[in-house]
Amino acid sequence: MVINHPLLGPRDSSEFVYLGDASLMNRPNWLDKDAGQKFYTYQYLRDNPHLEHKELWFHEQGDRSWLIVTRNTSTHEILKVELAKKFFDKGG
């Protein structure tokens, strides 16, 4: 696979480490009333969608940026690659 890094251009997937669903960025607030339930959902419950999926990849053998990769889980086509930091700035 080739991931088109927003800063470095196309890079081989072997340079990256995969983490999983990008929902891991939406960490709940510990002071919420039902924080226990929210963290349980955050930590253990993930969607496993067909087709478009936003996922987290770490460019470990590169610039060490965390990326949000939008990938078609059926064809492996990569539709979008964004820096996690920027993604956050836009409010998810």
């Binding site: 987290l56 770490f58 940026s65 965390w66 820096l83 930091k85 956050f88």
Partner: peptide
């Protein structure tokens, strides 16, 4: 730590 820095506490 990079995950925390970039994804949780940017």
């Amino acid at each position: 730590l990079e995950f925390c820095r970039q994804c949780l506490y940017p």
